[in-house]
Write a protein that binds this DNA or RNA. Structure first.
Lengths: 198, 198
DNA sequence: TTTACTTTTGAACGATTGCTCAATTTTAGC
DNA sequence: GCTAAAATTGAGCAATCGTTCAAAAGTAAA
C-alpha cells in the first residue's frame, strides 16, 4: 500500500544522541541534526515532533544504553563490585581510548547542568534517568552483599548515592582536566574506600 | 570635558554573571541581558565587546568572588579544615537557603559542561579558574598540616584534587536531586573521610 | 497500470539571534 | 552659552533559528 519508511529509527536516534551529547541541547541546531542524521526537516518533524521530542528520545536512548553497558559489565565479571569498577573505568575513560564517545561527561549530567525549567520535561527526564541508574547501582551493591563482597550492615541506598556522586565528580573533573594517570588514581582511591566498607 | 559613564561596572558584571549562571551561555540572549543590566546594545558592546567578552568577565568575577568567600571562611574560623567545611556547606546549600544564588551548581562546572571548543577561550577561562580554586584548597590543606590538623605525610595536591572532585560531585548531585538532609549527610561523610586522613 | 496511501522533500515562513552605527544626550572646560 | 568629547540610545541589519506544508516520490494492492 504505502511507502515504507526509509530510515532506521534507532540508528537515527543514536546519531542524534551523539550530536546532542557533544554540543548540548541549545548549541545543536536542527540544521546540524539534519546533516548528521541525513533527513530533511519534514521527515524529522513527522517522526519526532520537535527538537525537544528528538532530544527526549535521545536521552532515553542514552540512559538505556548506559544500563545495558552496566549489565554487560556484570556478565563479563563474576563479581558485582568488579563489574561496578569496570563500568566506571569504561565510563570515565570512554572518551580517551574510544574513538566514539562525544564527551567525557555523562550526557544526563550535561543536560541537568545546561537546562532549566524552560525545558521542564527534558530536565525531569534527565533527572529520572539519573535516579534509575542509581537504582541499578543499588541492585548491584545488594548483590555484592549476598555474595559476601560487601558487609551486610552497609546502607545500600546511601552507598549507591555515594557511588553516583563519585562518578559525577570524577567524570566532570576528568572532562575539565584531561590527565589519564590522575583519573585512574581517583578511581582506584574510590574503590579502596569501598573496600574499607567491606 | 566628556560625558561620565552612568553605569557601575562591577554591579553590571554581577547582574550579568547571575543571569549567565542561571540560564547558561547559549540560553542567555543579549536581549535578556539588556533587561537585567538595563543597558542598550550600543553601550554593552562599547563596554564589553561581545556576548563572549561579557561572559568572560562574568566568569572571572564569579571565580574571584568564590576565592574571596573561601578566604572569608578562613578568617571566620580558627581552623583551616573547618574553614573548608564551612565553604563547602555554604556553596552547596547556597541556592537552598539563600534567596540569591541562581543555581545550586558551580558556574564554572556548568560552563565546562556546556561549552565546547567552539568557544575555546571561554572554556579555557573556566578550566583555569577551576585549577586556581583547587590551588586555594591546597594552600588551606598545607596550612592544616602546619596547624597539625592534617598528617604531614599526606599528599596535599592529591587531597586538594579529591576535595575538588567531591565538591563538584555533591553540588551537581544536589542540583539534580534537591533533598537537604541527604546533602548534609554527603558533606559530613566527606569530612569524616578527611578526618581518617588526619 | 492504475489507485490509494505514506513518506520524503526543500523552499520558505515568522521569530529571534548577535550586533552595528548614525543620531542624540550629557557632561566639563572655556 | 558655547564647544568638544564621550556615553548612550534604539531602529534596524544580515544571519540563523525552529518549524510548516504543498508538492514530489515511492510502494503495495487491485
Amino acid at each position: 500500500m504505502s511507502k515504507p519508511a526509509k530510515f532506521n529509527r534507532e540508528d537515527i536516534i543514536h546519531k542524534a544522541a551523539n550530536l546532542y551529547w557533544q554540543k548540548g541541547f541549545h548549541a545543536t541546531s536542527m540544521r546540524n541534526l539534519q546533516e548528521v542524521i541525513d533527513m530533511r526537516p519534514g521527515s524529522i518533524y513527522a517522526t519526532f515532533g520537535s527538537k525537544e521530542g528528538l532530544f527526549k528520545e535521545a536521552l532515553q536512548y542514552y540512559a538505556q544504553t548506559g544500563v545495558q553497558a552496566l549489565h554487560a559489565c556484570r556478565t563479563e565479571t563474576g563479581s558485582p563490585l568488579q563489574a561496578l569498577k569496570l563500568f566506571i573505568e569504561r565510563s570515565v575513560m570512554g572518551s580517551k581510548c574510544d574513538t566514539q564517545a562525544p564527551s567525557g561527561m555523562c550526557m544526563l549530567v550535561k543536560t541537568v547542568a545546561e537546562l532549566t525549567e524552560d525545558n521542564a520535561d527534558l530536565l525531569a527526564e534527565a533527572k529520572l534517568s539519573l535516579v534509575m541508574i542509581e537504582t541499578e547501582f543499588a541492585k548491584l551493591l545488594t548483590e555484592a552483599q549476598t555474595c559476601g563482597e560487601l558487609d551486610a550492615s552497609q546502607d545500600v541506598k546511601a552507598l549507591a548515592r555515594f557511588v553516583q556522586v563519585q562518578i559525577i565528580g570524577i567524570r566532570t573533573y576528568a572532562h575539565a582536566n584531561r590527565d589519564s594517570d590522575t583519573i585512574q588514581q581517583l578511581i582506584d582511591d574510590l574503590f579502596s574506600t569501598l573496600a574499607v566498607n567491606k
